[in-house]
Amino acid sequence: MVEKVAELPTGGTSWNKNFDVPAEKVLDLKPDLVVSTWSGGFNAESGFATRDQLARAGIDSYVNPVDCAYGATRPSAADQAAYDRQSIASTYDFIEETGVIFDVQKKAAEVVAGLRKRVEAVGDRVAGEDRPKVLLAFPGMASMSAGGLPAVFSGGVYDDIIEKAGGENSFPSDGPDPDLTSTLSPEALASAEVDVLVVGLTDPSEEPEVKRLADQLFAKYPQWSASRTKTYTSLADGAFIGPANVRAVEKIADATHPR
Rank of each mutant, 00 (worst) to 15 (best):
Glu3Cys: 08
Gln80Cys: 10
Ala23Trp: 00
Ala23Glu: 01
Ser191Tyr: 05
Val34Thr: 01
Pro258Glu: 07
Gly148Asn: 01
Thr233Trp: 07
Ala72Asp: 15
Leu201Met: 08
Leu135Lys: 06
Ala23His: 01
Val104Gln: 13
Ser182Arg: 15
Asp28Val: 01
Phe94Ser: 12
Gln80Glu: 15
Asp84Tyr: 10
Asp130Arg: 14
Val249Arg: 01
Val2Pro: 05
Leu189Trp: 05
Ser225Thr: 13
Thr181Ile: 06
Asp130Glu: 15
Thr91Pro: 02
Gly166Lys: 06
Ser170Val: 06
Phe171Ala: 01
Lys4Asp: 14
Ala57Thr: 00
Ser191Glu: 15
Ala77Met: 14
Pro150Thr: 01
Glu7Arg: 15
Pro258Cys: 13
Asp177Glu: 11
Arg51Ala: 01
Lys117His: 15
Ala49Gln: 00
Phe138Met: 10
Asp28Tyr: 04
Asp203Thr: 07
Arg74Cys: 08
Asp160Phe: 03
Leu213Pro: 03
Ala121Met: 14
Thr233Arg: 06
Val246Gln: 01
Thr13Cys: 11
Arg74Asn: 15
Ser170Trp: 06
Ala57Val: 00
Asp177Leu: 06
Thr13Val: 15
Arg74Gly: 09
Asp174Gln: 12
Lys211Tyr: 07
Ile241Gln: 14
Ser227His: 06
Ile88Trp: 00
Gly71Ile: 08
Val111His: 10
Ala6Leu: 15
Asn16Ile: 02
Ser143Asn: 11
Pro258Phe: 12
Gly58Tyr: 02
Asp52Ser: 11
Thr256Asp: 12
Ala151Gly: 10
Asp130Met: 09
Ala69Asp: 08
Ile88Val: 07
Glu120Ser: 13
Ala239Tyr: 13
Thr37Ser: 11
Ser225His: 06
Ala226Asp: 05
Gly148Pro: 00
Pro22Arg: 02
Lys17Arg: 14
Ala78Leu: 11
Met141Trp: 13
Leu213Asp: 07
Ile161Glu: 02
Ser227Leu: 06
Gly242His: 11
Ala253Pro: 10
Met141Gly: 12
Lys106Met: 12
Glu250Pro: 03
Ala72Thr: 15
Val134Thr: 08
Ser234Gly: 04
Arg51Glu: 04
Leu149Ile: 03
Ala192Tyr: 03
Tyr158His: 10
Ser191Arg: 12
Leu184His: 04
Thr37Gln: 11
Glu7Cys: 11
Pro132Tyr: 03
Arg125Glu: 14
Asp174Ile: 12
Arg212Asp: 13
Ser225Ala: 13
Ile162Arg: 02
Lys230Asp: 14
